[in-house]
Amino acid sequence: MIGTISYLVFFATTASILAIAVLGLNLQWGNTGLFNGGVVAFFGAGAYGTLILGGTPQDGHLGGYGLFYPLALLGGMAAAGVMAWIVGLLTLRLRHDYLAIATFGVAVAFENLMRNAEWLAGGAKGVRGFERPLRDALGDGFLYNIAFFITVLIILITVYLFLERLVASPFGRLLRAIREDEEAASSLGKSPSRIRLTAFITGSVILGLAGGLYGTFYAFVSPQDVLPTLTFQIWAMLIVGGAGNNRGAIFGAFLIWGAWTASGWALSRFAPVEAQLYTGSMQFVLIGVVIVGMLMWRPQGLLPERLVVSQRGSKE
């Protein structure tokens, strides 16, 4: 019994952290129409940043600043933001493709750098030696996990409320205006590329926050955590949940994470031994089918955007 509850807490914590990431992506894609092909890089920047800043000294690589935890987390978010600022500055003036390609490239380069640069973040071995905050008071067991889950939940709700207010604000209306018709928005005297940059950085900082929490949860991060898989999963969560709808984003995160975990479990349990090597491939095919299928048959997602004045589909 305690085993089941403990697993459920573990599952819900991971899903909630991913839901925060999906919310960040929703601001970029759902609300502003910015394609982020390298979600995992910003997530990873948050995770690496937090652990390097907040960890204990390690031999051979950067880190061990032992910063007060909230500051370390903010530092991780800032790292994601700075990366978004650089990429956004270079690409947001250009046609949409450039952002897609550049963000995809950031993710490849980020993983590549983390894997190779031992002096920076331990290379393939990853960043160790991070002490989870308040571990002395709460211990390492079930109690800690419950407390951590509640913290993540509070952060998720805070991010949700923040984004809901942002989307309802004049700035949010501007974002949608730019998404629907950039020329019209710029004729109102607004600079679309600056507004898009703001939205892109804000979304990436939220992705960094999710990454920071993820790193904290495992007290460890390595290049294996920043593989493209995560990008695809987070996309699928948003597309299935419903781009443009924050509740849909959260719903999609839990649904897809549940389906992913369940399919992995089912494949490992029921697939013949010789097929075990291919469970990864099967899961990827499934996620590809989910993405393509949703776009073809239900592009608005399971929970569609509510306040739409959309011209999607009718525009050339």
Binding site: F35, D97, A100, W235, I239, F284, V285, I287, G288, L295
Partner: peptide, 12 residues
């Protein structure tokens, strides 16, 4: 949406 679809196709 085409970019998403192409990523999905690539995975498949």
């Amino acid at each position: 949406s085409m970019v998403f679809a192409s990523f999905g196709m690539a995975l498949i």
